[in-house]
């Protein structure tokens, strides 16, 4: 039996790496991948909790999270695609249209 706290620690570490990726990387696609990483970290803790609590709800939740993640990836990538068409770059620092 895997101790729940170890699963959670792994989840926390993966999540932190994802946060760092979002804040440090400048390629917008890598940023996006870091977000996926964070989502997976959350999924992991869900599974951990579900196992410890003998409950299936966490697992069902992951199912939904994965669907939402798929939808998000599709829409997000198409946004990146259309921004790339006009700006010819993937550098997130230049995606600054929404400023004062």
């Amino acid at each position: 039996m895997i101790p729940i706290s170890h699963v959670l620690v792994l989840s926390a570490l993966l999540f932190s790496i994802g946060v760092l990726g979002v804040m440090l990387r400048r390629n917008v696609i890598v940023v996006f991948m870091s977000i996926e990483l964070m989502l997976n970290a959350v999924n992991l803790s869900f599974v951990g909790f579900a196992r410890t609590m003998d409950d299936m709800t966490g697992v069902i939740f992951i199912f939904f999270i994965i669907v939402v993640a798929a939808a998000e990836a599709v829409v997000g990538l198409s946004i990146i695609l259309s921004i790339y068409r006009t700006r010819k770059t993937l550098n997130i620092d230049e995606f600054n249209l929404l400023k004062w």
Partner: peptide, 14 residues
């Protein structure tokens, strides 16, 4: 890891 946590279905869709 999901498989080890008895969440085979999640592992598969993962």
């Amino acid at each position: 890891i999901y498989v080890m946590l008895n969440a085979e279905f999640v592992a598969v869709i993962q």
